[in-house]
């Protein structure tokens, strides 16, 4: 595989993985908007991403495949394997004439309780993200982070406040819903999150009970409860009405004090759906790959580090954005 100005390209099969410019055939690792973009003639993704892609890219021609299912295009064998990033997120394995390459999209190592756990895929060439590819990023176990989140929620409840937490509508939101202690109170969701929840529920994926926060629900009802919304809702008129509230942001970027101190948020929880430094290194080691192409993130530093560790490491320019402090996913309106 090579990386062109359109995307990750497999010349033998003439297909692209997560292309950012319109192409005929696109294999999609997951449904985040920087990986699943407009304008391709055909999309192929793992089943649970299909309804999301169809919803976000109206009219898209999407074909679903199962994890592990082998598909053959022009003599090249493709298969999708869990990446642990969000529900349905996949690494795409490409085999041709005995050579195996893997485009991993976005991934994480820790089991988050809702996404399919990452599967290590042995390969010769591994294409990796590097969103958090510096040794300052080291995640605590999620059980500790969620116990902090639960404590925060409880404290707000005692103080008669709403707990307002931001998360990506696709991925982080479902992870929060799954893992917070729902005994503390009711979980209310922003419309864009509830749509994604229902797209998963309709497929038989179990997402714990949530309530869509509509205009009929009074602010009084929200006191003591949890509201989950994409960060773009924070400054909106919708978000401003939610008070009195303690506002929290969940992101790997909260590692840095400067980011935690951002105005407009009371708490920053370090929680990411991307691998941390140790995670990236462990996964790459486990693949057994000798060649690694490093994409979005701390591309150059991480590739240099891999070279020092004996890998043939390359950098590549892509248009993937990784985790953003302010979500630039277009909110799906209710």
């Amino acid at each position: 595989m090579t990386i062109t100005d359109k995307g990750i390209y497999c010349a033998e099969a003439n297909v692209y993985i997560d292309p950012w410019k319109p192409v005929d055939k696109a294999l999609i690792t997951h449904a985040h908007s920087d990986h699943a973009r407009w304008g391709h003639k055909q999309y192929i993704s793992q089943h649970s991403s299909v309804p999301i892609i169809r919803h976000r890219l109206k009219g898209a021609n999407v074909r679903g495949v199962k994890f592990g299912e082998k598909i053959n295009i022009n003599g090249v064998q493709f298969s999708f394997h869990p990446a642990g990033h969000i529900i349905g997120s996949a690494q795409i394995r490409v085999e041709h004439k005995g050579r195996v390459e893997v485009a991993s999209g976005d991934y994480k190592l820790e089991a988050d309780g809702i996404s399919e756990e990452i599967e290590i895929v042995k390969c010769h060439h591994f294409i990796t993200e590097s969103t958090f590819g510096l040794p300052i990023f080291r995640w605590r176990p999620q059980s500790e982070v969620f116990s902090d989140i639960n404590e925060w929620w409880k404290k707000n409840k005692e103080e008669g406040k709403i707990s307002f937490i931001t998360a990506y509508a696709l991925g982080k939101a479902q992870r929060l819903i799954q893992n917070v202690d729902s005994k503390i109170g009711t979980i209310y969701t922003h419309g864009s999150i509830e749509i994604v929840n229902n797209l998963f529920r309709d497929q038989g994926i179990n997402i714990p009970t949530t309530r869509h926060l509509t205009s009929e629900i009074s602010q009084k009802q929200l006191i003591g409860n949890l509201v989950i919304a994409p960060s773009s809702a924070l400054g909106s008129s919708w978000g401003k009405k939610i008070k009195p509230a303690s506002i929290a942001i969940t992101s790997g970027w909260m590692t840095m004090r400067g980011n935690r101190r951002r105005r407009g948020a009371d708490r920053g929880f370090i929680l990411s759906d991307h691998a941390d430094w140790d995670g990236l290194n462990k996964v790459i080691d486990a693949t057994g790959a000798s060649e690694v192409t490093v994409t979005h993130g701390y591309t150059e530093a991480f590739a240099r580090h891999l070279s020092e560790r004996g890998f043939k490491a390359y950098t590549a320019t892509t248009e993937y954005t990784g985790e953003q402090l302010i979500e630039n996913e277009t909110p799906v309106e209710a």
Binding site: W253, M256, R257, G258, N259, R260, R261, R262, L325
Partner: peptide
């Protein structure tokens, strides 16, 4: 890149 609270931008 910024310092302090703006390091990612």
């Amino acid at each position: 890149r910024g310092h302090g609270r703006r390091t990612s931008l």
